[in-house]
Protein backbone atom coordinates (compact mmCIF):
# COMPACT_ATOMS: atom_id res chain seq x y z
CA UNK A 1 0.00 0.00 0.00
CA UNK A 2 1.58 3.26 -1.11
CA UNK A 3 -0.58 5.66 0.82
CA UNK A 4 -3.16 4.96 3.43
CA UNK A 5 -5.28 7.67 5.00
CA UNK A 6 -7.09 6.45 8.09
CA UNK A 7 -9.99 8.28 9.66
CA UNK A 8 -8.42 11.72 9.47
CA UNK A 9 -9.95 14.71 11.23
CA UNK A 10 -8.80 18.28 10.92
CA UNK A 11 -10.21 21.49 12.29
CA UNK A 12 -9.08 25.08 12.28
CA UNK A 13 -9.85 27.49 15.05
CA UNK A 14 -11.47 30.64 13.90
CA UNK A 15 -11.20 33.47 16.39
CA UNK A 16 -14.28 35.52 17.03
CA UNK A 17 -13.40 38.38 19.33
CA UNK A 18 -10.40 38.27 21.62
CA UNK A 19 -10.84 35.12 23.66
CA UNK A 20 -13.72 33.20 22.15
CA UNK A 21 -12.59 30.73 19.55
CA UNK A 22 -14.75 28.77 17.20
CA UNK A 23 -13.74 25.45 15.75
CA UNK A 24 -14.19 24.94 12.07
CA UNK A 25 -14.27 21.24 11.25
CA UNK A 26 -12.75 20.84 7.81
CA UNK A 27 -12.18 17.09 7.54
CA UNK A 28 -14.56 14.69 9.22
CA UNK A 29 -13.09 11.21 9.25
CA UNK A 30 -11.57 10.67 5.84
CA UNK A 31 -10.16 7.27 4.89
CA UNK A 32 -8.89 6.03 1.54
CA UNK A 33 -6.02 4.18 -0.04
CA UNK A 34 -3.73 4.77 -2.95
CA UNK A 35 -2.07 1.88 -4.79
CA UNK A 36 1.10 1.85 -6.82
CA UNK A 37 1.06 3.52 -10.22
CA UNK A 38 -2.50 4.64 -10.21
CA UNK A 39 -4.06 8.03 -10.45
CA UNK A 40 -6.63 8.86 -7.83
CA UNK A 41 -8.88 11.82 -8.49
CA UNK A 42 -10.30 13.74 -5.57
CA UNK A 43 -13.10 15.95 -6.76
CA UNK A 44 -15.21 18.38 -4.80
CA UNK A 45 -16.38 21.95 -4.69
CA UNK A 46 -14.41 24.88 -3.29
CA UNK A 47 -14.19 24.76 0.48
CA UNK A 48 -14.95 21.07 0.70
CA UNK A 49 -11.59 20.46 2.37
CA UNK A 50 -9.84 18.70 -0.48
CA UNK A 51 -6.88 21.06 -0.46
CA UNK A 52 -6.55 20.66 3.31
CA UNK A 53 -6.42 16.93 2.74
CA UNK A 54 -3.61 17.53 0.26
CA UNK A 55 -1.68 19.57 2.79
CA UNK A 56 -2.05 16.81 5.36
CA UNK A 57 -0.79 14.19 2.91
CA UNK A 58 2.34 16.17 2.01
CA UNK A 59 2.98 16.57 5.72
CA UNK A 60 3.05 20.34 6.08
CA UNK A 61 0.14 20.15 8.48
CA UNK A 62 -0.76 17.54 11.05
CA UNK A 63 -4.17 15.91 11.40
CA UNK A 64 -6.02 16.37 14.70
CA UNK A 65 -6.97 12.72 14.69
CA UNK A 66 -6.25 9.71 12.57
CA UNK A 67 -3.14 8.59 10.74
CA UNK A 68 -1.56 8.89 7.36
CA UNK A 69 0.78 6.09 6.30
CA UNK A 70 3.14 6.14 3.37
CA UNK A 71 4.68 2.73 2.70
CA UNK A 72 3.37 1.71 6.12
CA UNK A 73 5.28 4.48 7.88
CA UNK A 74 3.33 7.10 9.75
CA UNK A 75 4.36 10.42 8.25
CA UNK A 76 4.00 12.22 11.56
CA UNK A 77 6.15 9.79 13.51
CA UNK A 78 9.82 10.38 14.19
CA UNK A 79 10.75 8.04 11.35
CA UNK A 80 8.48 9.99 9.04
CA UNK A 81 11.36 12.16 7.83
CA UNK A 82 12.79 9.37 5.71
CA UNK A 83 9.69 9.00 3.57
CA UNK A 84 9.61 12.67 2.63
CA UNK A 85 11.58 11.55 -0.40
CA UNK A 86 8.58 9.59 -1.64
CA UNK A 87 6.19 12.53 -1.73
CA UNK A 88 6.11 15.55 -3.94
CA UNK A 89 3.62 18.23 -4.79
CA UNK A 90 2.53 20.54 -7.58
CA UNK A 91 0.34 23.48 -6.70
CA UNK A 92 -2.31 25.38 -8.57
CA UNK A 93 -0.62 28.74 -8.40
CA UNK A 94 2.60 28.19 -10.30
CA UNK A 95 3.88 31.73 -9.78
CA UNK A 96 3.95 31.40 -6.00
CA UNK A 97 5.28 27.85 -6.30
CA UNK A 98 8.72 29.09 -7.25
CA UNK A 99 10.91 31.61 -5.53
CA UNK A 100 10.85 34.65 -7.86
CA UNK A 101 14.50 35.34 -7.03
CA UNK A 102 15.67 31.91 -8.20
CA UNK A 103 16.63 30.99 -11.72
CA UNK A 104 15.13 27.82 -13.15
CA UNK A 105 18.39 25.98 -12.51
CA UNK A 106 18.30 26.94 -8.82
CA UNK A 107 14.64 25.98 -8.54
CA UNK A 108 15.21 22.44 -9.80
CA UNK A 109 18.53 21.96 -8.04
CA UNK A 110 16.93 22.44 -4.62
CA UNK A 111 15.43 18.91 -4.37
CA UNK A 112 18.53 17.37 -5.97
CA UNK A 113 20.72 19.07 -3.40
CA UNK A 114 18.63 17.61 -0.59
CA UNK A 115 18.83 13.96 -1.62
CA UNK A 116 21.83 13.53 -3.84
CA UNK A 117 25.34 14.72 -3.37
CA UNK A 118 26.21 15.47 -6.96
CA UNK A 119 28.92 17.66 -8.36
CA UNK A 120 27.86 20.90 -9.94
CA UNK A 121 28.32 19.54 -13.43
CA UNK A 122 26.30 16.39 -12.75
CA UNK A 123 23.54 18.44 -11.17
CA UNK A 124 23.33 20.64 -14.25
CA UNK A 125 23.24 17.58 -16.51
CA UNK A 126 20.49 16.08 -14.41
CA UNK A 127 18.50 19.31 -14.53
CA UNK A 128 18.82 19.48 -18.32
CA UNK A 129 17.62 15.90 -18.41
CA UNK A 130 14.62 16.72 -16.25
CA UNK A 131 13.76 19.77 -18.32
CA UNK A 132 13.85 17.67 -21.47
CA UNK A 133 11.58 15.13 -19.77
CA UNK A 134 8.92 17.80 -19.34
CA UNK A 135 9.42 19.18 -22.82
CA UNK A 136 11.58 22.21 -22.15
CA UNK A 137 14.99 22.90 -23.61
CA UNK A 138 18.14 23.81 -21.72
CA UNK A 139 17.92 27.43 -22.79
CA UNK A 140 15.50 27.91 -19.92
CA UNK A 141 18.17 27.12 -17.34
CA UNK A 142 19.26 30.65 -16.61
CA UNK A 143 15.88 32.30 -16.93
CA UNK A 144 13.79 33.72 -14.14
CA UNK A 145 10.25 32.50 -13.42
CA UNK A 146 8.61 35.72 -14.62
CA UNK A 147 10.18 35.23 -18.03
CA UNK A 148 8.24 31.99 -18.56
CA UNK A 149 4.62 31.45 -19.53
CA UNK A 150 2.19 29.71 -17.16
CA UNK A 151 2.39 26.38 -18.95
CA UNK A 152 6.17 26.44 -19.07
CA UNK A 153 6.39 27.32 -15.40
CA UNK A 154 4.01 24.51 -14.47
CA UNK A 155 6.27 22.17 -16.44
CA UNK A 156 9.20 23.43 -14.39
CA UNK A 157 7.20 22.68 -11.24
CA UNK A 158 6.54 19.16 -12.50
CA UNK A 159 10.22 18.71 -13.35
CA UNK A 160 11.08 19.81 -9.84
CA UNK A 161 8.47 17.44 -8.42
CA UNK A 162 9.90 14.39 -10.20
CA UNK A 163 13.50 15.34 -9.44
CA UNK A 164 13.51 13.39 -6.18
CA UNK A 165 12.03 10.30 -7.89
CA UNK A 166 8.97 10.32 -5.60
CA UNK A 167 6.54 7.42 -5.37
CA UNK A 168 3.57 9.74 -5.71
CA UNK A 169 2.81 13.37 -6.43
CA UNK A 170 -0.03 15.39 -4.99
CA UNK A 171 -1.39 17.57 -7.77
CA UNK A 172 -3.40 20.25 -6.01
CA UNK A 173 -5.48 21.83 -8.76
CA UNK A 174 -2.31 21.63 -10.80
CA UNK A 175 -3.91 22.43 -14.12
CA UNK A 176 -6.82 24.59 -13.06
CA UNK A 177 -5.21 27.94 -13.72
CA UNK A 178 -3.95 27.05 -17.18
CA UNK A 179 -5.89 27.50 -20.38
CA UNK A 180 -7.51 24.48 -21.94
CA UNK A 181 -5.02 23.64 -24.66
CA UNK A 182 -2.15 23.81 -22.16
CA UNK A 183 -4.20 21.73 -19.72
CA UNK A 184 -4.34 18.91 -22.25
CA UNK A 185 -0.59 19.15 -22.85
CA UNK A 186 0.15 18.97 -19.14
CA UNK A 187 -2.26 16.06 -18.66
CA UNK A 188 -0.57 14.21 -21.52
CA UNK A 189 2.79 14.91 -19.95
CA UNK A 190 1.57 13.56 -16.61
CA UNK A 191 0.22 10.42 -18.30
CA UNK A 192 3.49 9.89 -20.10
CA UNK A 193 5.52 10.32 -16.90
CA UNK A 194 3.25 7.89 -15.10
CA UNK A 195 3.94 5.21 -17.69
CA UNK A 196 7.67 5.95 -17.85
CA UNK A 197 8.72 6.23 -14.24
CA UNK A 198 6.03 4.30 -12.42
CA UNK A 199 4.56 7.06 -10.36
CA UNK A 200 1.19 7.61 -8.68
CA UNK A 201 -0.85 10.76 -8.58
CA UNK A 202 -3.38 12.22 -6.25
CA UNK A 203 -5.22 14.56 -8.51
CA UNK A 204 -7.15 17.13 -6.50
CA UNK A 205 -9.47 19.13 -8.69
CA UNK A 206 -12.95 20.41 -9.35
CA UNK A 207 -12.72 19.70 -13.03
CA UNK A 208 -14.55 16.51 -14.00
CA UNK A 209 -13.30 16.48 -17.56
CA UNK A 210 -9.69 16.39 -16.42
CA UNK A 211 -10.53 13.60 -13.99
CA UNK A 212 -12.02 11.43 -16.71
CA UNK A 213 -8.98 12.15 -18.87
CA UNK A 214 -6.31 10.99 -16.46
CA UNK A 215 -7.67 9.24 -13.37
CA UNK A 216 -8.14 5.54 -12.68
CA UNK A 217 -10.27 6.00 -9.59
CA UNK A 218 -12.31 8.93 -8.33
CA UNK A 219 -13.34 10.07 -4.88
CA UNK A 220 -16.19 12.55 -4.53
CA UNK A 221 -15.53 14.91 -1.68
CA UNK A 222 -18.19 16.99 -0.05
CA UNK A 223 -18.17 18.99 3.17
CA UNK A 224 -15.16 17.21 4.67
CA UNK A 225 -16.38 13.72 3.87
CA UNK A 226 -15.96 11.20 1.11
CA UNK A 227 -19.45 10.80 -0.28
CA UNK A 228 -18.70 8.36 -3.05
CA UNK A 229 -15.85 6.37 -4.44
CA UNK A 230 -15.73 5.21 -8.05
CA UNK A 231 -13.23 2.42 -8.56
CA UNK A 232 -13.57 2.21 -12.28
CA UNK A 233 -13.57 5.41 -14.26
CA UNK A 234 -15.87 3.77 -16.83
CA UNK A 235 -18.57 3.61 -14.17
CA UNK A 236 -18.51 7.32 -13.56
CA UNK A 237 -21.99 7.71 -15.08
CA UNK A 238 -23.51 5.35 -12.54
CA UNK A 239 -22.83 7.32 -9.39
CA UNK A 240 -25.48 6.95 -6.74
CA UNK A 241 -24.92 9.77 -4.29
CA UNK A 242 -26.99 12.92 -4.86
CA UNK A 243 -24.06 15.25 -4.59
CA UNK A 244 -21.97 13.34 -7.11
CA UNK A 245 -24.94 13.17 -9.45
CA UNK A 246 -25.42 16.92 -9.24
CA UNK A 247 -21.77 17.53 -9.89
CA UNK A 248 -21.76 15.20 -12.85
CA UNK A 249 -24.91 16.69 -14.26
CA UNK A 250 -23.59 20.24 -13.94
CA UNK A 251 -20.45 19.25 -15.79
CA UNK A 252 -22.36 17.51 -18.58
CA UNK A 253 -24.70 20.45 -18.98
CA UNK A 254 -21.78 22.79 -19.21
CA UNK A 255 -20.18 20.67 -21.89
CA UNK A 256 -23.39 20.62 -23.88
CA UNK A 257 -23.74 24.39 -23.57
CA UNK A 258 -20.16 24.87 -24.57
CA UNK A 259 -20.75 22.75 -27.65
CA UNK A 260 -23.80 24.87 -28.55
CA UNK A 261 -21.84 28.09 -28.17
CA UNK A 262 -19.08 26.63 -30.23
CA UNK A 263 -21.53 25.76 -33.01
CA UNK A 264 -23.04 29.22 -32.93
CA UNK A 265 -19.63 30.80 -33.10
CA UNK A 266 -18.55 28.72 -36.05
CA UNK A 267 -21.76 29.15 -38.04
Amino acid sequence: MLLQVENVYKSYSKSCGIIKKEKLQVLKGVSFKLHRSECLGIIGESGSGKSTLGRLIIGVEKPDNGNIFINNTNINSSRGKSIKKDVSVVFQDYFSSVNPRFKIIDIISEPIRVYEKLSKKDTTLKIINLLERVGLSKKFLSRYPHELSGGQLQRVCIARAIATKPKFIVLDEAISSLDVSIQVQILDLLKELKNDIDISYIFITHDLTAVTYICDRVIFFHDGNIVEQVDNIEDLKNVKNDYSKNLLQAATQMNVREAIYENQRVS
Binding site: K84, V87, S97, N99
Partner: peptide, 14 residues
Amino acid sequence: NKNYILYSKTIGTS
Protein backbone atom coordinates in the same frame (compact mmCIF):
# COMPACT_ATOMS: atom_id res chain seq x y z
CA ASN B 1 2.60 29.90 3.51
CA LYS B 2 4.09 30.58 0.11
CA ASN B 3 3.88 27.55 -2.10
CA TYR B 4 7.61 27.30 -2.72
CA ILE B 5 8.27 27.04 0.98
CA LEU B 6 5.49 24.48 1.34
CA TYR B 7 7.20 22.52 -1.42
CA SER B 8 10.55 22.75 0.37
CA LYS B 9 8.93 21.47 3.53
CA THR B 10 7.23 18.66 1.63
CA ILE B 11 10.46 17.26 0.25
CA GLY B 12 12.23 17.81 3.56
CA THR B 13 14.65 20.60 2.73
CA SER B 14 16.65 21.62 5.76
